Amino acid sequence: MALDTDTPLNSLGFAKSPAETRVVVAMSGGVDSSVVAAVLADHGYDVVGVTLQLYDHGAALAKKGACCAGLDIHDARRVAEERGFPHYVLDYENIFKDAVIDEFADSYLAGATPVPCIRCNERVKFKDLLETARDLEADCMATGHYIQRKVGTRGAELHCAEDHARDQSYFLFSTTPEQLDFLRFPLGHLPSKAETRALAAKYGLSVADKPDSQDICFVPNGNYAAVIEKLRPDAAEPGEIVHADGRVLGQHDGIIHYTIGQRRGLGIGGLSDPLYVVRLDVDKRQVIVGPKELLATRTIPIREINWLGDVPLTSRLEWHISVKVRSTRPPRDAILRPLTETTATVELFDPEEGVSPGQACVFYETGGSRIFGGGWIWRG
């Protein structure tokens, strides 16, 4: 497996031998990070595996097969033993709860649709774990994310993965330039996940056939409402389902059971035309529904922007880029108009349906692979 081929002496870009290059590998217990650790160890690097224990099995609704739950910690440790490098487990439960889980619950209660995986990368893996890697005197930290780090004329750049079906750029837009200098993503250039599994088989890893994790790690079966009710027992307050024209159509058992763009399970059967959730009014405890055309959004307010361009965001009045407002949708052409260094408005060339506060808006080079950062969608 060739890693970065455009670096001077070793494949990770350091002017010394692999044996003199210490790499902390963030190991989730899955096949991707296990392959990264095994390959780097095979290439002679001084590998140190680190796994974060992010929650216990009961308090945060952990589930079998979820990232950094008990079984995965066991799997990561086993891979380290198989390949002969040290492995440590760090208890980050309190950090994860404060930085990720609590905000997830509070955002959901505020009518937003949060993306906790982004906050986990931003506030835990690429912040506290990265600092731990520095404390271990590592030269860099490697992860199993499908994204590419390339060195441009002005330093490290973030680029989409070669395999667009596996690309994780939407979840990594908040990676700062300083973090990018220290991070490495050895799987980003692979053409498919099949290549990763082939490498796992080649190295005889016990996780070679392990299924990919699904859903948010602390949300069993994608049931957000059940998690919120456990974390915030008084969250499910009843209220009205109201048509956008003001008509009261029914009652609901809590706004936490609804998301922007939802059509099914509204509890208002018997109507001739399909209706969608178009807005959530937390203060009035109302779920506002209406026809599909009310979901169309052209102008999106963005805040907490992390900018990865070569020149300052505010050095131009507008940027012609492409954006993603959901991880599963392709980038759309747009104009980014900065307001400050961290706030802007995005104007989509074609309206997007179901844009929701709490989701990320990620900026891409139009027609290219580079990521220029992104920010968080809010009400304005």
Rank of each mutant, 00 (worst) to 15 (best):
A2S: 14
A2D: 11
L3F: 09
L3W: 02
N10I: 01
S11M: 12
G13N: 00
A15S: 06
S17A: 15
P18T: 10
P18S: 15
A19R: 09
R22A: 12
V23C: 12
V23H: 03
V25M: 04
M27V: 09
S28H: 04
S33R: 07
S33I: 03
S34C: 08
V35I: 08
V35D: 08
A38M: 06
V39R: 13
H43V: 00
V48A: 07
L54A: 09
Y55S: 15
H57S: 15
G58I: 13
L61F: 06
K63M: 10
K64G: 14
G65Y: 05
L71D: 15
H74K: 11
V79G: 09
A80L: 09
E82F: 02
E82W: 05
G84Q: 06
F85G: 11
D98R: 15
D98Y: 04
I101G: 10
E103G: 05
D106I: 07
G111H: 07
T113F: 02
C117I: 05
I118L: 14
N121L: 07
E122Y: 00
V124W: 03
D128K: 14
D128F: 14
A133L: 00
M141I: 13
A142E: 08
G144P: 02
Y146E: 04
K150C: 03
V151F: 14
G152H: 11
T153I: 10
G155Q: 06
A156I: 01
E157N: 06
H164P: 08
A165L: 15
R166G: 00
D167N: 11
Q168A: 05
L172E: 08
F173L: 08
T175D: 07
E178D: 12
R184D: 11
R184V: 04
S192N: 12
S192K: 10
A194E: 14
T196M: 05
G204V: 00
K210M: 11
I216Q: 12
V219T: 10
G222Q: 06
A225P: 11
A225Y: 03
E229T: 12
E229H: 00
L231P: 05
D234Q: 06
D234V: 07
A235E: 04
A236K: 08
A244W: 07
G246T: 03
H252M: 01
H252N: 02
D253P: 02
G254S: 10
I255M: 05
T259P: 04
I260H: 13
Q262N: 01
G270R: 02
G270E: 12
L280Y: 02
V282H: 05
V282S: 07
V282W: 10
R285Q: 12
I288P: 00
K292T: 08
E293Y: 06
L294P: 05
T297G: 01
R298C: 03
G309H: 00
D310T: 13
W319F: 00
V325H: 14
R332G: 07
D333F: 01
I335K: 03
A344T: 02
D350N: 12
G354P: 00
P357A: 03
G358M: 02
C361G: 02
C361R: 04
C361F: 03
V362P: 01
V362L: 07
F363E: 10
T366V: 02
R370L: 11
F372G: 11
F372R: 06
G373R: 09
W376K: 15
W376D: 12
